[in-house]
Design a protein around this nucleic acid. Structure first.
Lengths: 346, 346
DNA sequence: GAAATCGACTGAAACGTTTCATTCGTTTCA
DNA sequence: TGAAACGAATGAAACGTTTCAGTCGATTTC
């Protein structure tokens, strides 16, 4: 591989001049700059990244720390990151934590969780990245984790209450509000909601959105329409069975995640109710599967790719000393209309 | 951040000695080595990776070039890579090509495909990685692409006929053979097969496996049982409809991918045939969705994680000058028993 | 008892850049 | 006309390691 020294010799100038010409710093006459660029082109010279990093102590690399790459949200987020980072001339170093395992239908941190994180921050990423993007698998406060990072960090699909981190997460409340409003505008008044565990943050926010819409539209709340599940298809099925055996069963079910909605679909079929004619169903998450069930599930889609590229954009802006608009942002979901929602029967 | 110089001063020795002590090269007395290690521990010194790279021209980083991160096979492969690389002390630089788009149900390269690749090899990965792992989205020869890489490369979920690359791919033929044998052992004789497009390599291999099993078991081939689809659910549906309207319809359908199998399930239901009682269905790929359809689809699962970690292991062995067993390997699939297969009716 | 060997340790160069401080000739301006 | 300012170019140090080629004293060998 050619070095700057060879280019300098060929051009009959010093390495300093070559460096200045290439970086548009210092002052170089137009004619020698052109001569240098021509030779660079000819030889196919590429500055040695390692040497540049050593000298400037910037790596133009950002570390992507993913809690679990195989959870369906992660790849698309990471893709969004890659897309932005690439065009900005940054490399991505990927680290998959893999420290959660499924317990029932929620995730629990493994015991070596913190060791893993520490090792990561100490040994793995030190002086290898300029900044870190932390990609969570569900919305919660990860301050405890990211505050130990010694580089600028942005959280994605989760948030941090610590001062050193930006956060890019889903606006669950507004999305749930809009979905509920949508059902109401379609004439539904008996709208049940299936929540996740009460201590789940996304569940709480989504429920808040639902309740706000119900309240704003002066709909009387039937306590039977409010059911707490555990995110699993089975719990959705059980809960919906109960719902459909009510003498005044709901005409619409808003499941706060897709899996429970699948259970609702199944229960409806068994109860002899057809979706969407007799009962409308809306899910949340836009799991890949929701396109393939019958009927295809209408659901709320988090803008995963935008979450990733938005976070990457802010982090890189920060790294380069440019103004960064805000300390984070809540991203709106998109309602994906498929075949499980219709007007309420008169 | 502390440097080797500070450690040297604190220990009252030269930087050379510190370096030797840390790398177990040169000869250092046991007592000074211990003294040095104690100080290193105390200060929390970490060698500067960039400086080491510059000096040794090894980056301990491997580039993962993924054709499409959002295709379902990729994340698990990449996870396997990460897992191995991490414990071997290597970093992963991720690059997502994103150069394919869906045309109907197969993928086609975008027009800027080769520009993208060239830019990648020239600018992006040069002197940044020691070797490259190329992760394909379907099995085919990628020699044209990877032969331009100027580093050792291993192909995953695809293969390269060029000399410079290792290949780690799925043994489609054996898997299809075993699935067909499985059906035969369950008493099935009228076994239909749904292939993908004739020019598709995986389709060809899988079909070969099917035919071998049929032939070996002296089953007479009914040409009507052989149908060519385009991998889509719709084509599976249409083909299966034709199959089930035959006066002597098959008792088992082997779909060479999962999506077409979903179509088969749908067609069976509409034809009044219950799966698996009246007809058994086996898919291929183990798409995440296959677990959620009804009945849950029995299918063949490529060992994605193993593919990734196996390739990473070989590449790293090669980079470190250790003996590498072979130039590549075909990995066996695992048959995933779910609810779509049963004994043939008497 | 001189030569050879050995173990412990070190000085300094090298990896390929960036950038500070400086030089040198030309132009501008009071 | 002389000083100041400026544009173009450069020498050399620095970033933090690794490693070649030694030095030096102690021990072994014949």
């Amino acid at each position: 591989m050619a070095t700057i020294k060879e280019i300098a010799e060929l051009a009959g100038v010093s390495t300093t001049t070559v460096s200045y010409a290439l970086n548009r710093s210092g002052s170089v006459s137009e004619s020698t700059r052109r001569k240098i660029l021509r030779i660079v082109e000819e030889i196919g010279y590429q500055p040695n990244k390692t040497a540049v990093s050593l000298r400037t102590s910037k790596t133009r690399t950002i570390g992507v720390v993913a809690e679990d790459l195989t959870v369906f949200v992660t790849p698309e987020i990471v893709d969004g990151i890659c897309e932005y980072a690439e065009q900005a001339g940054y490399h991505i170093i990927l680290d998959n934590l893999r420290v959660f395992h499924k317990v029932g239908n929620s995730f629990q941190a493994l015991s070596h969780y913190h060791d893993e994180i520490r090792q990561l921050t100490d040994a793995t990423l030190h002086d290898t990245v300029d900044g870190i993007l932390y990609v969570g698998i569900h919305c919660r406060d990860v301050a405890e984790i990211v505050s130990s990072f010694e580089r600028p960090v942005a959280c994605i699909y989760c948030y941090s209450s610590s001062a050193n981190a930006y956060s890019f997460f889903v606006d669950d409340e507004t999305a749930a509000f809009q979905a509920t409003e949508h059902l109401i505008r379609l004439g539904h008044r008996r709208i049940a909601v299936l929540t996740g565990p009460v201590d789940s943050l996304p569940s709480q926010s989504r429920l808040r959105g639902y309740q706000k819409a119900i309240l704003q539209n002066d709909i009387v709340i039937n306590p039977h329409y409010f059911q707490v599940g555990d995110w699993s298809q089975e719990s959705g099925y059980e809960l919906a069975k109960r719902l459909f055996s009510l003498r005044s069963h709901p005409t619409a079910v808003f499941s706060l995640n897709d899996y429970m909605a699948f259970g609702v679909l199944q229960a409806a079929k068994e109860a002899g109710l057809s979706v969407p004619e007799d009962v409308s169903v809306i899910g949340f998450d836009n799991q890949p599967v929701s396109r393939y069930c019958t009927p295809a599930l209408s659901t709320l889609a988090p803008p995963l790719r935008e979450l990733g590229s938005g976070a990457a954009a802010s982090l890189i802006a920060l790294l380069e000393g440019r103004a960064v608009p805000r300390k984070g942002k809540a991203f709106a979901c998109q309602y994906v209309e498929r075949q499980s929602v219709a007007k309420a029967r008169r």
